[in-house]
Design a binder for these strands. Structure first.
Length: 593
RNA sequence: UGCUCCGUAGUUCAACGGAUAGAACAAAAGUUUCCUAAACUUUAGAUGCAGGUUCGAUUCCUGCCGGAGCAACCA
């Protein structure tokens, strides 16, 4: 379609130059809306405005001119300022035959000369298991990485693991006090779930202590400060920072459990990483940068010793970079980490942070500071921001245990998939292992699609009661269409695919093919907007078009050999296209369901 | 108070500034001798309010109303 548009643009451009002495080479084409005759529409308002002429008259002249020159255009009609062009069926037939068997239509293989993009996502804390918010983060980050790769970029997937700090010590203290040497093995819990359990125990104990101190006459603030378990946690953090070997080994042991647990969840979600950064290794790096900034007088010290940067000229505020006691803040660490990344991977051109929109301001400040410091790549940083996942009664709060646990949710999704599959009763010939695999593919497919189809800037409302649909605009809808086509194709041979170009197509068949033709544009738009949702919605539209036409037609019974053949070509292309687009969303497809 | 993001059918989501705002769920009515009914076909239903820019606005601008987030020597 792009090629056709380009050649039409040239024709129109020539026409304008010869007849009106006007140089324009950029025209607005769009697919013709359903209720009008035609396939491709040229929007004429901007042209007509420049040469004061009646649109109707102009469009008629232009239309005849185009038809004379381009064989692919059969007819035209004019409505208002829209020139609707009717494309020959053979154009579509040739296209569908050309991309046949190409499961990567529209994708571009990256080469060593392609840009390299680092993308950070996930970035968990090691004191508790992953929740639904992380799922959105992971799916988004992973999907964007696939999309960027499919459009010809080299990708390095990374994360920053927040493996130190007071919150980690909380879990450690609670386990130390009340754990009775409980391990993942002895408890049967996933490592991250076990550690998370002690984080909750800490918070519970902490609150009890605050309450009882308040009864003894403390005000809230001092009660929080003086709660024995909190004092213990702070002491532990100090010991950790001074490299106390006992504390360090406890820390390593518990973090090890968490990593084992995370690995399982990541595997379930189908996401992975090429590199890892640990806060424990990077949290001191930023201090060097502070010295640099001070020398260049980009930063300044206040009398109490704290270090600041003034970003008011950039439309932001003054921001602290080093506390008065000389310790680093979050921003300091992030400065250090990003600089280290560009040192570690000199080939990267840009870096994408997949982080929730509550940190929009933080990243504006981070990027502004890096620009002030003069790093050439500072303009190539991007914050891929996304909305929070909310529950019906508000935001998730892990401290209060008000979360949708990732592992539980995944298990529930599989269960639901199982229940529905069994009710359908179409997979009786699969063995147990194949069935379990299928439940996983469908359950996770539903979850991934549910999350990714929503524009990432918007918040997602997740109602655990209603959970995730399996009917309608859902992952299983896509998967089901794919399985059906696979089943159809398994019943035909290569001889059934005849190449004939003088077949006439049904309007709906043309729409399906047109939809596939727009796939490269969809990819571009998805990259431009960092939005997997665009691909999800494209997929849905494709399957809907396919279903609505082929649901009530028995392709195998079609007597006309050529019509049958073209329908098989279309079916196969749809399946291939579903396959490549689903890859980008990380949605797996079953051959049978 | 300031800044940022979001307001579309009862609900969950769509719509490069384009033509009569698309779907799904829920509701009502249909479609299984047929490649798989997790599907398909009908019916009913929406742009927060007021201005502006434009041939044309859900989309861009201004103001208001409503929701969320940020504005920590928290991470």
């Amino acid at each position: 379609m792009k090629n056709l548009e380009d050649s039409l643009s040239k024709i129109v451009s020539n026409f304008l130059e010869n007849h009106y002495n006007l140089l324009i080479d950029n025209f607005e084409f769009q697919l013709t809306k359903k209720n009008f005759e035609g396939d491709l529409t040229l929007v004429l308002f901007s042209i007509v405005k420049r040469i004061k002429i009646n649109p109707q008259e102009f469009a008629n002249k232009l239309g005849s001119y185009i038809i004379d020159i381009n064989q692919n255009i059969k007819k035209f009609n004019v409505v208002g300022g829209f020139l609707n062009l009717v494309i020959n069926d053979s154009f579509y037939v040739e296209f569908i035959e050309k991309i046949d068997k190409n499961t990567e239509y529209g994708h571009k293989e990256p080469s060593s000369a392609s840009p390299t993009i680092m993308i950070e996502y996930s970035s968990p804390n090691t004191n508790k298991p992953l929740h639904l918010g992380h799922i959105r983060n992971n799916l988004l980050g992973f999907s964007i990485s696939r999309i960027l790769k499919a459009t010809g970029n080299n990708i390095i997937k990374t994360q920053i693991i927040n493996d130190r700090g007071i919150h980690i010590c909380k879990s450690m203290v609670a386990w130390y006090n009340f754990g009775n040497n409980e391990t993942p093995e002895s408890s049967g819990l996933k490592g991250d779930q076990l550690v998370g359990k002690y984080y909750v125990i800490f918070e519970k104990k902490f609150n009890e202590e605050i309450n009882s101190l308040q009864k003894d006459g403390y005000d809230k603030e001092s009660a929080i400060k003086n709660a024995p378990i909190m004092i213990q946690a702070r002491e532990m953090l100090k010991k950790w920072e001074s490299n106390d070997s006992k504390i360090r080994s406890l820390w390593k042991k518990m973090n090890g459990w968490v990593y084992d647990g995370f690995a399982i969840t990541y595997n379930d979600l189908g996401v992975d990483f090429d590199s890892y950064y640990y806060e424990s290794e990077t949290y001191l790096l930023g201090k060097k940068i502070i010295d640099q900034g001070l020398n260049k007088e980009i930063f300044y010290s206040k009398p109490d010793g704290s270090v600041w940067v003034d970003l008011r000229n950039e439309g932001l505020d003054e921001k602290i970079l080093l506390r008065s006691d000389g310790t680093a803040v979050y921003m300091t660490q992030d400065l250090g980490t990003v600089i280290k990344r560009f040192e570690d991977f000199p080939q990267i051109d840009s870096l994408i942070y997949t982080v929730g929109n509550e940190q929009d301001y933080h990243f504006k400040v981070l990027f502004a500071i890096l620009k002030k410091l003069g790093y050439s790549w500072a303009d190539n940083l991007y914050h891929l921001s996304y909305g929070m996942v909310d529950l019906p009664d508000g935001k998730m709060k892990s401290r209060e245990g008000k979360v949708v646990d990732a592992d539980n949710l995944i298990i529930e999704m599989r269960k639901t998939a199982k229940k529905i599959s069994e009710k359908q009763g179409k997979i009786n010939d699969l063995d147990n292992k194949q069935r379990e695999n299928l439940y996983n593919v469908i359950g996770l497919g539903a979850l991934k699609y549910f999350i990714l189809k929503v524009d990432n800037r918007k918040r997602i409302l997740f109602n655990p009661e209603e959970s995730v649909d399996f009917e309608g605009n859902t992952g299983p809808f896509i998967q089901y269409a794919y399985a059906r086509i696979k089943s159809l194709l398994s019943k035909v041979s290569d001889n059934d695919f005849l190449k004939k170009h003088n077949v006439s197509l049904d309007i709906k068949e043309k729409e399906i093919i047109k939809q596939i033709m727009t796939y490269p544009d969809v990819l571009n738009s998805s990259v431009k907007n960092y939005s997997p949702a665009i691909i999800a919605n494209y997929l849905y539209e494709l399957v809907r078009l396919y279903n609505s036409f082929y649901q009530n037609i028995n392709i195998l019974n079609e007597v006309n050999k050529e019509a049958r053949s073209i329908r098989l070509f279309i079916s196969r292309s749809v399946a291939n296209n579903i396959y490549s687009a689903s890859q980008l969303l990380g949605i797996k497809l079953p051959e049978k369901m």
